[in-house]
Design a protein around this nucleic acid. Structure first.
Lengths: 222, 222
DNA sequence: GTCTATAGTTCGATAGAC
DNA sequence: GTCTATCGAACTATAGAC
């Protein structure tokens, strides 16, 4: 479950377990729907250790979000650098690939419990409460500005304001895929499968790329 | 439900107040973050009346969602009929107008506290928990199938599966606008205003229309 | 660092007077 | 229908032994 770098030495095994268990619990039931007792039980450690390591439920939640956000954003930057190294010409599809794949793929990574954080991210990024907005801004505004600026460079005529809009639309699309509620399968009688990652990413890219380009070219006319 | 057909003047004034207060509270803090006591206080009625009228917090939540969903979907159907009466040729833009405007406009209707339900809908439609999925299916699967079928009719070459994908993407875009978290304004230094409803709807339509058409025409190639 | 025990609240829901 | 009063349970967090 918890991948630790050190083989024998376990400096904060309890803290790691708590983070993993918290991620699982928060992602299923949100902040208020999760109890510290359930987290401790899931981690198999004493409930008092939660406060010993993280101070409060609130700080534990923030730590869970930050841990994965850092990982996701690092993957995005690495993938973008890699794609640019192969093809220096900045295209919208390349940008969307670098932006969307890490999140969506992360949400479908069953081997590393990525699904858990994916749903947690849906809570945070889609949430309208103060805590969600604060955490979203703290963990994702920087990467957002990076990609927004590149959208402007890659799409002729796209204003910064339109790039912001397109970015947020693209994010919402990614979130809808990360949730994996099975609704796509329900509405399509099983034709739309939640577990076909490549198809989901491909269609998200097609949709978002066309949408962003349309924002630049078809502004203010039906 | 515990509704009785007493034709008195001001029938169940307390129940109405509870519904309104519940909508406000649930939309801000979600199901678990809202207490029945806070709802009763917001409604200005005794806390015991909540259970008298609605049985449980759970049923009250469902009732709040159903009340507005019925209204939103009725508006969608009426608007679609109206648009079709004026121009019988079914276009994707017409469909998106009929689908998106009621929700987004509802979320920006400050005079009728539509903002409250808009955020509640974000919770429900974006939520991945069992309750959210159940309520989403119960209240929105029917209208979803209606629009999905029309998408197929309106866009040459669009498969049913792609229409489902496009529909869900369009929904997620609408949700991102309904939340009104102010993030668009933050990321654009105020250029993207949350309160410009017509611009938001217009850009959502442009984005979604281009995206859906692209799903039909550019399938499976970068 | 890890445990037990519990403080101090607050929760959803109900009983019963009126 | 509306109220007071309260039950029993669950909550976050902390104190203190070891």
């Amino acid at each position: 479950m918890a991948s630790q770098m050190t083989a024998l030495d376990s400096p904060q095994e309890a803290a790691e377990s708590l983070l993993d268990a918290a991620e699982a619990q928060f992602s299923e039931n949100g902040f208020h729907g999760t109890t510290t007792r359930a987290i401790a039980a899931g981690a198999g450690v004493n409930a008092a250790l939660l406060h010993y390591y993280f101070g409060s439920k609130e700080q534990l939640f923030a730590t869970v979000v930050e841990r994965r956000a850092a990982e996701i954003n690092a993957r995005r930057r690495a993938l973008l650098a890699d794609l640019l190294a192969r093809n220096p010409a900045l295209s919208l599809e390349t940008l969307l690939e670098a932006f969307l794949r890490p999140t969506i793929e992360f949400g479908h990574d069953t081997t590393r419990d990525g699904q858990r954080y994916a749903r947690l991210l849906v809570h945070v990024a889609a949430g309208t409460d103060e805590r969600s907005r604060r955490l979203t801004a703290q963990n994702y505004n920087a990467i957002a500005q990076e990609f927004i600026a590149r959208f402007v460079d890659a799409v002729p005529g796209l204003t910064h304001r339109e790039a912001v809009r397109g970015y947020l639309f693209a994010v919402s699309i990614a979130l809808s895929l990360m949730g994996r509620t099975g609704r796509a399968g329900d509405l399509s009688d099983g034709a739309c499968r939640d577990d076909d990652v490549d198809q989901a990413i491909e269609e998200a890219k097609i949709f978002a790329a066309a949408g962003i380009r349309a924002l630049a070219t078809r502004r203010y006319d039906t």
